[in-house]
Write a protein that binds this DNA or RNA. Structure first.
Lengths: 350, 350
DNA sequence: ATGAAAGCGCTAACAA
DNA sequence: TTGTTAGCGCTTTCAT
């Protein structure tokens, strides 16, 4: 026995003794049907468990209540939050979201866009894999709002990002305010604008305080746990280790904490750690991590809203608009940062 | 200026000087077209940047290369992993995934299913909000594979779960093997089968070792951080606190660790902690958490594969099959569990 | 206020 | 091998 087929608008019409057009009318709240007829139709719909076919409707109307979302990795908490925000707003507006991973693969990203295109999505929110992808082709077909990561340097178009520079600057100021002067940074991917900006904010903060960034205190990571661990080990092994370390993302912070544990260096007594990226568990570490919290959920919401507005406006690519909403990150001061104890640390360094 | 419309199969046909049906033929690799004609068509498709409209195709064929996925909360790492697994398999099979949150709201869950239904998805993977939802209506329309959580007690249908009982049993055995006898449990939601099974596994383990579960050592939580914290505080405040605690999910473990920190109880020296649910950060806690790791990614993959198989078979609801694939969880022994030091703890307890 | 008819972009019979 | 025709389920004029 085969699957029970869906009831169509004609089934409903027949059962209610009206024409399909009339059913369509009540379906779309046109309000030009007598109450009695409407009643009958609604009964019929219930009886047949009728659900209008979105695809047929879209085919006819040329619109589609589906948006796409492309993100690099759901397992990273920040992106998961982004996704939640998008879904929430989309749902509220009666839209569904077609999801796909871009998994750091540029070719995959292209395939994703093509797929969204094939599904005739009304638009998409995308968190780009890197800053070299061209979206021109896709953009001619449907609006895209970029979130967190811009697709090209000098991008002009709709986007929601956070002010990484300001956040890194504030983080640096916090460390300096505590009395630190020997501050190290474990930097992230420099092919991403956000990565560059975090470095820039750090630089600026140091400069304003007339503090030099020593060469050996500038370490290049790649956002992985492993790199945080390695760079951390290098920093701690220095003849004169820093008294504070600014780690440029959550994963690297994890690796760094591991390195501290291995070196049996107490945090924050001997060394302060400040993490870019907050995550739910940061508050449960010992010590609780001082971190820069990016408003992932809000970014997702804003991006979705911006997209939906553009979709509603129904304009062509030339008029998409170019607002880049820049949100602020929040510095959450907890226990991993404190006043420097230079002597203690230097005594231990070998 | 309005958005550039998509090229249709007729545009391609016209440009290539053939009929739409011929284009459709090469599009679907029917292979009954001369190479020369095929060539011309492909050129035309490229020139027009043609992408076949999935919706129109689905409307015609009655099939749809989209599956739905419903999960309670993406921000929980376990569910995010589930989602990744599903997406990965779906993509590989040329399917897209329509995502939605069920956010612990049964009504929302219904709405989600209706939405999937309206989009005529080929099937869905769902992680049910709770064990009282009826899916009969939806199931008559498309196959559903349940994952991690079953929709009703005594559910018979396709599902991928993990053997919670065995995992909890093994965890308990580990604690007992270490020499613990005063073991407490912070239980999770008992309206979910999985929650019940974890308790059952614990019971069985204790029973086999002829160990009693003291009333005051059995604490009921609700999977929230807060409840883990509260129950933890209660346990530690007991005249005779336990020497080991089995916490039934990741969030409650977080709360529990917080409670330990407040009581300044050393783990594992004074008390051992074993967590159900592993997560990436568990290995970076101090101490590193011993935990039961559920294979979230693999569960997602298996569920998607099962669903896709059922979809491919194209049978009716009566023949959907009822395999419940039960995966094993893995006990990851790290540093939060050790031999009991009863004296030390009792001395401290007031 | 309601219905008849056309057609969105595609594919599947069938005809040529 | 290729083209013609019909129709998937819906909405939208345009008559009535």
């Amino acid at each position: 026995m085969s699957r029970k087929p869906f009831a169509t608008i004609r089934d409903v019409a027949r059962l209610a003794g009206v024409s399909p057009a009339t059913v369509s009318g009540v379906l779309n709240q046109k309000g030009n049907s007598r109450a009695e007829v409407r009643e009958r139709i609604e009964q019929a719909m219930k009886a047949l468990d009728y659900h209008a076919d979105h695809m047929a409707r879209s085919l006819k109307t040329g619109s589609n209540k589906v948006i796409g979302m492309v993100i690099p990795d759901l397992r990273n908490f920040f992106f998961a939050e982004l996704m939640c925000g998008v879904e929430e707003v989309a749902r509220a507006a009666g839209f569904s979201v077609l999801f796909s991973h871009a998994n750091k693969d540029q070719q995959l990203e292209r395939a994703n866009l093509a797929m969204l295109s094939a599904h005739r999505v009304a638009g998409a929110v995308v968190c780009s894999t890197d800053a070299h992808t061209s979206y021109d082709g896709a953009l001619r077909r449907f609006p895209i709002v970029f979130v967190d990561r811009l697709p090209v340097i000098g991008f002009r178009g709709q986007a929601v990002t956070v002010d990484n520079t300001a956040a890194a600057w504030e983080a640096t100021r916090h460390l300096i305010g505590l009395g630190h002067t020997d501050i190290a940074i474990i930097a992230g991917r420099t092919d991403l604008l956000a990565g560059l900006q975090r470095i820039e904010g750090f630089r600026r903060g140091m400069q304003e305080a007339c503090l030099a960034i020593r060469d050996e205190y500038f370490r290049q990571g790649d956002y992985s746990i492993e790199s945080g661990y390695r760079r951390g080990l290098e920093l701690l092994g220095l003849p004169e280790p820093p008294t504070a370390i600014f780690s440029c993302n959550n994963n690297m912070t994890l690796g760094l904490m591991q390195a501290l544990a291995e070196y049996k260096v107490e945090c924050p007594d001997e060394i302060s750690v400040l993490s870019y990226d907050d995550f739910p568990w940061a508050a449960f570490f010992r010590p609780q991590l001082t971190a820069v919290a990016q408003p992932g959920l809000e970014m997702g919401r804003r991006a979705a809203r911006m997209l939906l507005d553009t979709v509603a406006a129904g304009k062509g690519p030339e008029e998409y608009g170019q607002e880049n909403v820049v949100l602020k990150a929040e510095l959450r001061i907890r226990q991993s940062t404190g006043r420097p104890r230079i002597a203690a640390l230097k005594g231990r360094a070998q």
